[in-house]
């Protein structure tokens, strides 16, 4: 009886090892493509491969921060900062924030989130909301949602999500301010 169970387990393990061999390449490729897609969307025009041009800095609070560097003809033109907003309505919101060499935002995309469909996820479905970050700097905007006296729209019935995103984007800008220039 133990032999039968063992046989089933071994057969299962063989099938899984085989599936893992087949799929591990494509899965890694999918993940890489996702990063590349987000980098292309947020960075200014560049002709290097920013996903391979990475550097890691240690921030004041001891956490490590990955940076992706965009170059045009070898010349640094901008930085992409992956940040996480820990205070979304339902969990973390992962963002990719692009900043040019003058500290101006060139784009923000959402990598993953679990916000409520129809409320918090308007940050993606509202086609004007994320693009409104473009061109903002630490100085030329009040970094809060309008309800809190800032410059950024909140959504009807959903303030927590925009508040979390605005804070995370400002954090990305501050990181850039300190280490990129």
């Amino acid at each position: 009886m133990v032999a039968a169970l063992m046989a089933v387990c071994i057969a299962g393990a063989v099938v899984l090892a085989w599936s893992d061999r087949i799929t591990s390449g494509p899965i890694a490729e999918q993940k890489r493509r996702e990063v590349v897609r987000s980098l292309t969307a947020v960075l200014p025009p560049h002709n290097n491969a920013p996903d391979q041009d990475m550097s890691t800095v240690v921030l004041d609070d001891g956490t490590e921060q990955t940076l992706y560097l965009a170059r045009m003809e070898g010349q640094w033109v901008g930085t992409a900062v992956p940040v996480t907003a820990p205070d979304g309505y339902s969990g973390n919101i992962d963002l990719m924030v692009g900043v040019d060499r003058n500290g101006r935002l060139t784009g923000v995309v959402v990598l993953s989130h679990a916000e409520t469909p129809g409320l918090g996820d308007k940050m993606i479905t509202d086609e004007e909301w994320l693009p409104a970050f473009r061109g903002r700097t630490l100085e030329n905007a009040r970094w809060a949602v309008k309800k809190d006296g800032g410059d950024f729209d909140q959504f009807t019935g959903a303030t927590i999500t925009p508040r979390a995103v605005v804070n995370a984007v400002r954090h990305a800008l501050e990181v850039c301010e300190k280490v990129c220039r």
Binding site: V15, L16, S19, T23, G25, I27, Q30
Partner: peptide
């Protein structure tokens, strides 16, 4: 289930 999980993740 794991096979389905892996293949969905890949493709």
């Amino acid at each position: 289930v794991t096979v389905v999980d892996l293949f969905l993740n890949a493709f």
